[in-house]
């Protein structure tokens, strides 16, 4: 898995609550048998007009946000289906972090397995970040995972919570399957006990 340590980037704002995984990547793009090209389908129904041309009103298509690696989204990001295609599409496009006030459980788990950092901030900091982006579109912020801090321009900063295990995995790019395989003996013991 890709490591995550620090990231300095502009934020791409999507002021929409409850962005579901069907918006992140519509189901018709789930027929692939690999992970390639998912970034092209990111937010497809919002991003492209019916004729396939880019929708100029959508932030992803605006030049000021090109290269943004941080998605600043409304409350309860990633609700809906379990499709890991959602984080594949986000990372495929180039995002490394999503900021919201809350994340749906399955999306959060899927994001963490793909080096995509879900940053949960309180409502106040959420508002400050949106305001910052309104005042200075394309303003850069810095995310430091080790210290669990977000640095805003000037001296403003905020901390965010993340459980220690996920943090360690992201900082070191730990492969979770490799980690679980480390419990092989315990798993075998469990199975032996269950069989009797």
């Amino acid at each position: 898995m890709a490591q995550f340590t620090t990231l300095t980037s502009r934020m791409l704002p999507l002021v929409v609550n409850n962005i579901d995984t069907d918006q992140i990547i519509p189901a018709r793009f789930l027929k692939a048998t690999d992970k390639k090209g998912m970034g092209e389908a990111l937010f497809a129904d919002w991003r492209y007009n019916t004729d396939g041309s880019p929708n100029p009103d959508f932030a992803l298509n605006q030049s000021i946000y090109q290269g943004a690696q941080i998605l600043l989204a409304g409350d309860n990001f990633g609700c809906g289906s379990s499709r890991e295609h959602a984080p594949w599409a986000l990372t495929g496009f180039g995002f490394r972090a999503v900021i919201s006030t809350s994340f749906a459980d399955i999306f959060r788990n899927n994001a963490l397995k793909n080096g995509l950092l879900p940053i949960e901030v309180d409502a106040r900091m959420h508002r400050i970040l949106f305001e910052l982006n309104e005042e200075t579109p394309g303003a850069e912020i810095t995310v430091d995972l080790a210290s669990q801090m977000i640095q805003l321009p000037g001296s403003r900063s905020a901390s965010f919570a993340i459980d220690n295990f996920s943090k360690t995995c992201l900082l070191n790019g730990v492969d979770e399957l490799g980690y679980i395989l480390g419990f092989a003996e315990k798993i075998a013991e469990y199975e032996d006990k269950a069989a009797t």
Binding site: S81, E84, I106, F165, L177, Y179, I180, L181, F183
Partner: peptide, 22 residues
């Protein structure tokens, strides 16, 4: 409960998942 594709792989390989207690 529902899981993502990485977790599908974990269960196929180990019959286990890493889970935080809800």
């Amino acid at each position: 409960f529902g899981i993502g594709t990485s977790e599908v792989e974990h269960v196929l390989a180990t019959q286990c998942l890493l889970q935080r207690k809800p």
